[in-house]
């Protein structure tokens, strides 16, 4: 390689900036305020997989070939998830949030950044076991329509069921996990009854706004990909969507502590990042 490292480094950062700007203007997806190291890693991986010599070369394909862009979008959106991921989170919901929800006549839940839906169905199971599913409306959103389609179908590889069953039990599951899916060939099909009160819809946290008033918002392991300004913007969106006394559940390594809205919340569970919006004085 004839060029020196710092030269290459500068070129790469210019290419990334151009590419993200191009994606935003061409397709409306805004990755410009994402954590740079993460974005760079995903873009370089994609470039290498497709044997492009540079990100500039890849940019041509991104802008001219919608199918290629869609495959890149899949790489840029992190869809790694599982049923009852972090079982302790569900134990805490059961103990500290559900008893209060039980006093409401009608409950609205927003699961933001739901990816392929495993965690949405997990929460639906929890609501069902606690006897309040029938008066709950769940909005499950993601910015990636392809992954939402997977969530809508609720068909998952059967080889993960063993792990999910362990999670379900650790999460305080009251019955048998087999009650909630039907095994067929290599798939586990989520019980249709769990889908009844779930609406899957496309919503982009970066570019879209409030769409309803919520009692509970769950958004786990999404904010970690955003820079501080964008995190603050998204927490504002959650804050505007939550009723007073509403609950916000984030990922274990996420926090509202550094946002402008910290003072308006109390900790329900400090370690598991479950917050309650204060009732106005």
């Amino acid at each position: 390689m004839p060029e020196n490292t710092s030269h290459n480094d500068l070129t790469t950062s210019i290419e990334i900036e151009f590419l993200l700007e191009g994606i935003f203007r061409r397709y409306g997806y805004d990755f410009r305020s994402y954590s740079p190291a993460h974005i760079k890693r995903r873009l370089i991986n994609k470039m290498k997989q497709n044997k492009f010599r540079s990100l500039s070369e890849m940019q041509h394909h991104v802008l001219h070939d919608k199918n290629f862009f869609n495959s890149l979008l899949k790489d840029l959106s992190i869809n790694v998830t599982e049923m009852f991921r972090d079982p302790a989170f569900y134990v805490a919901l059961r103990k500290e949030v559900i008893p209060i929800l039980k006093t409401y006549p009608f409950i609205k839940v927003w699961h933001a950044g739901c990816a392929s839906g495993e965690e949405v169905y997990s929460f639906a199971i929890l609501l069902k076991e606690e006897g309040i599913y029938d008066r709950t409306q769940i909005y499950a959103t993601d910015f990636n329509n392809n992954i939402l389609e997977v969530a809508r179908k609720g068909i998952y590889p059967v080889d993960r069921i063993k792990e999910y069953t362990v999670n379900y039990q650790k999460a305080g599951g009251k019955y048998s996990f087999t009650d909630y899916y039907l095994a067929k060939y290599n798939s586990a099909i989520i019980d249709q009854a769990l889908k009844k009160n779930i609406v899957f819809a496309e919503h982009n946290l970066v570019t879209d706004t409030v769409f309803a008033e919520m009692h509970v918002i769950i958004c786990r392991n999404v904010l970690i990909y955003f820079n501080r300004d964008l995190q603050n913007k998204v927490i504002r969106l959650f804050n505007e969507s939550l009723v007073h006394g509403g609950f916000l559940g984030l990922g274990t390594k996420e926090t509202i502590q550094f946002s402008n809205y910290n003072a308006q919340y109390t900790d329900v569970n400090k370690e598991l990042k479950i917050y309650k919006k204060k009732v106005n004085e």
Binding site: S35, P36, A37, H38, I224, G251, K253
Partner: peptide, 12 residues
Amino acid sequence: LIEKDATLSLST
């Protein structure tokens, strides 16, 4: 992950 501004990032 380590960012250019010497801060840390996490990813799942």
